[in-house]
Simulated assay, not measured.
Amino acid sequence: MDTAALSPDAGIARALPADFPRRVLLAVTGLSPQIVTETLYALALRTQPPWLPTQIRLLTTARGAEHARLNLLSQEPGWFHRLRADYGLPDIRFDAECIEVIRDGAGQPLEDIRSQADNDATADALTEAVRALTADPDCALHVSIAGGRKTMGYYLGYALSLFGRPQDRLSHVLVSPPFESHPLFYYPSPGERVIHTLGPSPQPLDCHQAEVTLAEIPFVRLREGLPDALLAGRARFSGTVTALNRVFGPPALTLDLPARRIRAGGIDLVLPPAELAFLALFARRARRGEAAVPAPPKGAPDTIWSGWYLTERRLIGGELADLDAAERALRLGMDGDYFSQLKSKLQRRLREALGPAAQPYLIEDGGRRPRRYRLPLQGTQVTFAALDRED
Rank of each mutant, 00 (worst) to 15 (best):
G78E: 09
G355E: 00
G333I: 11
Y87M: 08
A291D: 08
T254M: 01
Y338A: 13
Q341D: 13
S238A: 15
D104A: 10
V28L: 07
S340I: 04
T383S: 09
P8R: 13
D337I: 13
A44C: 11
T54A: 06
A125K: 06
A386Q: 09
D91P: 00
D337T: 14
A62E: 10
V28D: 05
S7I: 05
L156F: 04
Q108A: 15
T213N: 09
P272G: 07
A132T: 11
L198D: 11
L230W: 14
P297N: 09
P77Y: 10
D322I: 06
G249I: 03
A5T: 08
P297R: 13
R234K: 15
Q359T: 12
E275N: 03
T61K: 04
D324L: 09
P50S: 14
Q359P: 00
R103E: 12
D324S: 12
Y186A: 01
P204M: 14
A358K: 01
V175E: 12
P77Q: 10
F278S: 01
Q359H: 08
A277F: 01
H196V: 05
I113T: 05
R369F: 13
D95E: 06
Q381P: 03
T60N: 04
R114Q: 15
T197F: 11
D19G: 06
L320E: 12
A117S: 14
T127V: 13
A291I: 05
A283C: 03
P200M: 14
V173S: 03
A125Y: 08
V247E: 08
W79C: 02
E97K: 09
T3S: 15
R331F: 10
P356L: 13
H142C: 05
D118F: 12
R246Q: 15
G147K: 02
F248Q: 02
S181W: 08
R371W: 13
L387T: 06
S201M: 12
G64C: 13
L226W: 05
G317R: 04
S189K: 06
G289D: 01
A65S: 13
L375A: 06
A68K: 01
H67F: 14
S238C: 15
G355F: 12
G78W: 09
R349F: 08
N119E: 14
A106N: 03
T47M: 04
P21E: 11
Y41L: 04
Y155H: 08
L133K: 03
L25S: 00
P109E: 11
Y186E: 07
A321R: 05
L174I: 15
A140D: 02
Q209I: 06
A210F: 11
A106E: 09
Q378V: 03
L25R: 00
I363E: 02
T127C: 15
T60E: 05
F237Y: 14
G233H: 13
I56R: 01
K343V: 07
T122Q: 07
L362R: 01
Q209W: 10
T380S: 15
L83F: 08
A42C: 06
Q75I: 06
H208I: 02
V101F: 04
W308N: 04
A65E: 03
P204E: 14
D118T: 07
Q34G: 11
A235E: 12
G153C: 06
Y87N: 01
Y187A: 01
A121H: 07
Q341A: 10
S171I: 07
G11R: 09
I113H: 08
R260G: 07
P8G: 07
P202G: 12
H81K: 11
M152W: 00
P190Y: 07
